[in-house]
Write a protein that binds this DNA or RNA. Sequence first.
DNA 1: GATATATATCTTAGTCACTAAGAGATTTAG
DNA 2: CTAAATCTCTTAGTGACTAAGATATATATC
Lengths: 175, 175
Amino acid sequence: MSRKKAQVELLQELEDAMRRSSAQGVLYGQTVANVAGIANSDLECMDILYLEGRVTAGRLAEVTGLTTGAITGVVDRLEKAGLVRRERDEKDRRKVFIAVVPDAAMKIGQFYVPMQQAMEKVFGGYSDEELRLLLRFANEGYKGVLAATEALKGLLDTPPEKRPALKLKTRPRQP
Amino acid sequence: MSRKKAQVELLQELEDAMRRSSAQGVLYGQTVANVAGIANSDLECMDILYLEGRVTAGRLAEVTGLTTGAITGVVDRLEKAGLVRRERDEKDRRKVFIAVVPDAAMKIGQFYVPMQQAMEKVFGGYSDEELRLLLRFANEGYKGVLAATEALKGLLDTPPEKRPALKLKTRPRQP
DNA sequence: GATATATATCTTAGTCACTAAGAGATTTAG
DNA sequence: CTAAATCTCTTAGTGACTAAGATATATATC
């Protein structure tokens, strides 16, 4: 045992707190989709487009885990709503780039204002050095979650009986 | 202007990094649901049950934003899968408590092991004091997101033309 | 250069989770 | 004791999703 009891508890608290805030983050997203009047996956794709810029339909399918057929539907709806445009790649005419229509970023962005304000308020309680620590953690956390997602996807290709037994460290929770 | 340019950039980076990792967190959840062979909302409810303990069907509807009818379906599926049990409240026989079946926590929990391992690895790079800072941030962040969600929900009840104009601070992103 | 294979998106048919509206059961208020 | 309120479930209908395959374009092989 290299960890003291207090630290194990700290880590458990941390895990729960992150899980809780992440769950609430999901709910915020659902609410945005509701208010904006678009489907959840549609908003998810808008978010990817915001973060990655112009991407192909296939990449959207890859990142969201949806089938290409489903993405066709997503893009159809977003295009009809005037939020994105299809742009055929002139180099490879099989590809279709999806690009956010300039004004659309703001139409959707406004619904993130309450979140930004709340976060600004929270960030206000931290020094620059502490904020840099949070940034470092956010970046490392992203990489960790990405890796974990890949690891978990790997299980999908493995038949259940051949899966390496996962040692479970969570204890059942008392309500 | 009370903030220096460097800090504004830091905050923007932080916002993007959090958005990115939170988006990846959503994807992790979707993958868990896939691997576990249950619907997304079903898993979301399992998560709420894990965090809140035994809750009523109505509370699940409230927290998830689904209708009570949808929750009936969720609970039906989870019950059939042997993950939860319906328990009528003896004090108020209209209410139905949903409780996680003891072993079920582990059945689902195993799919969070890759995530826990990834996070343990990340946490390993921080001192106890830094971890406490992260915990403080996670808790404050949760409260912030919760408040933001409520604020946004408020907009739903306000007719679009009567909504207080949200001042947009995001700048459109260059892809 | 012609043919075969690969890649990227779209189409179609069918499935399943969701909403809206209201029914049924129980509790609380007058 | 009746009326209103609360909580869950039921029903009918809608819409986003998958699987499979069609279409169009690109790349590889001979």
